[in-house]
């Protein structure tokens, strides 16, 4: 799966986990700064990402991606899948 596909799936996961049907999302969208994601949103997103990418995401991921853009979350997922 290339990065653009991963980004599209993350956008979908964000729509579902944060209920953002009309939000314009791009790889540079920041989760906290642009979407006002809080701790509940992050926890919901991690569960959604695990389901979408069929992988085990460590609990520490919340802290690692808390200040990230969608593109950086995609890099994190790709690295995790390759590990």
């Amino acid at each position: 799966m290339d990065k653009s596909e991963v980004i599209e799936k993350i956008k979908e996961a964000l729509h579902d986990s944060m209920n953002l049907p009309d939000a314009e999302l791009s790889s540079s969208t920041k989760l906290v700064e642009d979407l006002n994601a809080d701790s509940v949103d992050f926890a919901t997103l991690l569960m959604e990402l695990e389901e979408v990418f069929n992988c085990k995401i460590p609990d520490s991921a919340g802290a690692e991606i808390s200040d990230a853009t969608i593109g950086q979350v995609a890099d994190y997922i790709i690295k995790l899948k390759q590990a």
């Binding site: 579902d16 986990s17 944060m18 209920n19 509940v40 569960m47 959604e48």
Partner: peptide, 8 residues
Amino acid sequence: LKKFEITQ
């Protein structure tokens, strides 16, 4: 219901 509600 929305997906996030089903999760929570």
